[in-house]
């Protein structure tokens, strides 16, 4: 057990941070400075995207989250190179960017599998069998919960309420909400993605339910 394992349950700390401390990060070294824009190669389209985001706000700092999300989409995770690219375009230090990134669940500070699956395990999904579906997904993808599959294909996470308890138990497959899921759906999802299918096309999408009666409201009254 690592000396800093107790940090794992503490909000705001990340296992990576704990591991770095334990493995003896070079604390005597100066922190990385804000890189010179000309020192870092940034793909043109990425630079354009980040600059577009900066242009939307009165303060360029507001573009940090959109910029981090954009480089993550490009690199698959917030690699040191990805961080440096944002740092160079936005003129913030990599340390600042990492301090922000470590706060947010969707930003990955370690390399992860290509296809991301967030399985909701909050109350409404749990009461409808989320744990079984999660176990089935883990089995079908070969990814441990909270980790990635050894073949680098999948990233599986147990997630808090995703705001779709009407289709509980549900999961977000690369941003596409699917539910109610059965244990059998796990293999369908894994096979579909493994065969190179688009995430948007896996299983039928069930839109938020519509056309419901409104209690106490009669048709004529509301307009």
């Amino acid at each position: 057990m690592s000396k800093f394992d107790h940090l794992r349950g503490v909000p705001g700390s990340r296992s990576r941070l704990a591991a770095q401390v334990w493995e003896g990060a070079r604390v005597e070294a100066d922190p990385a400075e804000v890189p010179e824009p000309s020192d870092v190669r940034v793909p043109d389209h990425l630079r354009a995207t980040i600059e577009h985001h900066i242009s939307l706000y009165p303060d360029r700092r507001s573009a940090v989250l959109p910029a981090l999300s954009a480089v993550q989409r490009e690199h698959g995770w917030l690699s040191p190179e990805a961080m440096l690219q944002v740092a160079a375009v936005m003129q913030f230090s990599p340390a600042y960017l990492e301090s922000v990134a470590s706060f947010y669940d969707m930003l990955e500070l370690e390399p992860v599998g290509t296809h991301t699956i967030f399985m909701c395990t909050n109350l409404s999904c749990q009461m409808r069998g989320a744990q079984d579906v999660l176990a089935a997904l883990s089995e079908a993808t070969g990814s441990p919960v909270g980790g990635s599959s050894p073949d680098g294909m999948f990233r599986l996470r147990a997630f808090e309420c995703l705001g779709a308890c009407d289709i509980a138990p549900m999961a977000s497959i690369e941003g596409h909400y699917r539910g109610p899921l059965t244990v059998a759906d796990a293999t369908v999802i894994a096979d579909h993605l493994r065969a190179g299918g688009a995430a948007a096309e896996v299983l039928p999408q069930k839109l938020p339910t519509a056309g419901k009666p409104a209690v106490g409201l009669d048709e004529g009254q509301a307009q």
Partner: peptide, 22 residues
């Protein structure tokens, strides 16, 4: 009115718009 999200152990989970006070 209020759009109420009903979920968990119910047969028809979903959003329902109700008049407050029902």
């Amino acid at each position: 009115t209020k759009v109420v999200s009903v979920s968990g152990c119910v047969q028809r989970p979903g959003n329902y718009e109700i008049e407050l006070g029902v």
